[in-house]
Amino acid sequence: MSLSQTGDRLPASGAARGRQRAPRGLAPILLPTFSLLIVLLAINYFNPRAISYFGFNLMLNLAVPVTLATMAQLCVITVNDLDLSIGAYVGFIACVAATLLASRPWVGAAIILGSVALYAALGALVYLRQLPSIVVTVGMSFVWLGLALLILPTPGGQAPGWLHALVSISPPFVPFPILAALVIAGVMHVVLMQTAFGTLLRGAGGNEAAMARAGWSMLRIKITAYALAGLFGSLAGMALVGVTTSADANMANNYTLLAVAGAILGGAEFTGGRISPIGAVIGALTLQLAAVALNFFRLPDLLPGFRIPSEWQVGAQGLILILILAVRAVISRSEP
C-alpha cells in the first residue's frame, strides 16, 4: 500500500516542475524583444526624432523584404535544412519584377510561379537524394545569380507601379513596415505553431523517422517547406523592388546572412525543428534597426579613414548577433 502511495507522489513533483516550466514557451521571444527595446532606446538617445511615424517608415523601409526573407529561411530551418541561396533568389525575383513583371505581367507572374515550383523541386531533390541542403543551395545561389544577370545584365529596370504603391501605403497611426511585420508574425505564428499542418512541418524537423512511421510522406513535407520558402522569398523580392523601384542582380546578396541571423536571433535552433516565428520577425527588425542606428552614432567621425560604410554596417550586425548569442549563453548557463 505504501508503495503505490509513493508511486503517486513521486511523479507529482514532476508535475510541479512541468507547471514551473510552462512559461518557458515565452522565453524564446523575451530575449529578442529585449534586444529590440535596447536598440530602440539607443536610437531614442541619439536621435529622439527618429522614434516617430515617419522615422520608423524611413528606418524600416527595407524591413518588409528582410522580414519576408527571414520567414523563407525559417521555413527551411523548420525541416532541419538551411538555405544559403535565399539572398540570390530574392535578387533574382527583384530583377524579374523590375523587368518582365512590369512589361509583360503574365510572363513575369509565370516565371515567379515557376521559380516557386523550382524551390519545391529542390526540396524533393534534397530529400530524395538525401543531399546536404547547404551545398545544394550554395550551388543554387549561383544559378539564381546567373539567371538574374541574364534577365538584367546591368542594374536598372522599373518596378510595376502597383508594387510600389503597395509598399508605400500609409496606414493611420501605425507605420506600414511595423503593421506588415505584425501581420507576418501573426500569420506565421498561426501557420507554423498553431495549425495541425505546421505541427507536421515542425515534427519533421524534430524526428523524421517518427513522421515516416506515423505514415506521413516526408517527401511532401519537404516539398511544402521549400515551396513556402520560395513563396516568401518571392514576396521578399517583390517587396524589395517595390521599395527600391529598380533592381540589381546582386542587390540582396546579404539577405542570406540577415535571414539566418534573424531566425537565430529570434530563438530558432539550427536543428530539431525548434523555431519561433514571432521571435524571428523581432530578430529581423532588430538587425535592421541596428544597421540604421549605426548611422546615428556617427561612426564615420569616430573612425577616420573609414572607407566602406556598408562593410561596417554588416560587421555591426554580426557583432550584435554575437552579443545576443553571448547573452543567451550566459542566461542558459545560469539556469539550474
Binding site: 495541425a196 515542425r202 515534427g203 524537423g205 524526428n207 512511421r213 506515423a214 530539431g272 525543428g273
Partner: peptide, 24 residues
C-alpha cells in the same frame, strides 16, 4: 517501437496529432 518515435520539439499533445491525422 523500442527506439522512441516522438518528436522532441513538439508538445505531448502535438505528438498525439502526429499519429492521428483526424486531429485537425
Amino acid at each position: 517501437f523500442q527506439e522512441l518515435s516522438l518528436c522532441p520539439n513538439l508538445t505531448v499533445a502535438e505528438n498525439t496529432r502526429i499519429t492521428h491525422p483526424k486531429l485537425r
